[in-house]
């Protein structure tokens, strides 16, 4: 116990920095994952076959390959494709790596969120769409004002699960040298010669983050449930 506190005190700023990077990457992934995931879900259900096929193939491929492979593919693949992210260093962190890692995680999360959103939309009774159309609403309005709000409410538990998965999965971008929590743990292990303590500390930090997120989500869920039959 005392050695835990020792490590914590000594490498406080490293750990804080790592936590910050983990949070930044997770928030970026969740925000863009939600946007692209929802768009992908709409593509999957749209009337234009090529868009539907693209979404189907995308989801199948991303869900069917390891995230670690995807992270490496983006990290080494982007420069090969001629996309170079300038290496800007801010506060000791290489932004280009963070961007590359985040892109990989967004690509990954988009596939999962797409499936969650699609299931949510399809869970809404057909009568809701009909009633809205019968009141003269356009298809776009039916979707945004009637279907999506109800779908979102239904999928909050599944989304919460995905958000927590994203936070934990972000540890994998340590392999491309992003100084997030997992990377920080390994750094501290190397310089302190203590193999266990840094791991226990980051495990606790991960747990703290995911626990707070799940508390927030269940509060949101409770609020939304108020109007449910």
């Amino acid at each position: 116990m005392s050695s835990l506190i020792q490590v914590l005190a000594k490498y406080r700023s490293l750990l804080l920095n790592g936590t910050e990077i983990t949070l930044i990457i997770s928030v970026i992934t969740i925000v863009f994952g939600m946007i692209f995931g929802s768009l992908m879900a709409l593509m999957k259900m749209c009337r234009i076959p090529p868009l539907r096929w693209f979404a189907d193939v995308y989801v199948a491929f991303i869900r069917g390959t390891p995230v670690l492979v995807q992270i490496f593919l983006i990290f080494y693949g982007l420069p090969i494709m001629g996309i170079h992210i300038p290496a800007i260093v801010v506060g000791g962190n290489d932004i280009s790596r963070i961007v590359s890692g985040s892109i990989a995680l967004v690509i990954n999360s988009t596939a999962y969120i797409c499936e969650i959103v699609r299931a949510g939309i399809q869970s809404i009774d057909r009568g809701q769409r009909e009633a809205a159309q019968a009141l003269g609403m356009s298809d776009t309005r039916v979707l945004w004002a009637i279907i999506l709000p109800q779908a979102m409410r239904n999928i909050i538990p599944a989304l919460g699960n995905e958000f927590i998965t994203v936070i934990k999965t972000s540890s994998q971008v340590s392999v491309i040298g992003i100084a997030e929590l997992m990377y920080t743990a390994n750094t501290i292990r190397g310089i302190s010669f203590k193999p266990i303590e840094p791991l226990v500390i980051v495990a606790l930090i991960y747990f703290l983050i995911t626990f707070v997120v799940s508390l927030i989500l269940s509060a949101v869920e409770r609020r939304m449930r108020r109007s449910v039959r």
Binding site: G127, Q128, A131, G136
Partner: peptide, 22 residues
Amino acid sequence: KKYADLRMHVGMVFQHFNLFPH
């Protein structure tokens, strides 16, 4: 081409009410 106009003039009541729960 669009039915919105028609539907604003022709109201409909459904077997399952279909009120918007949210």
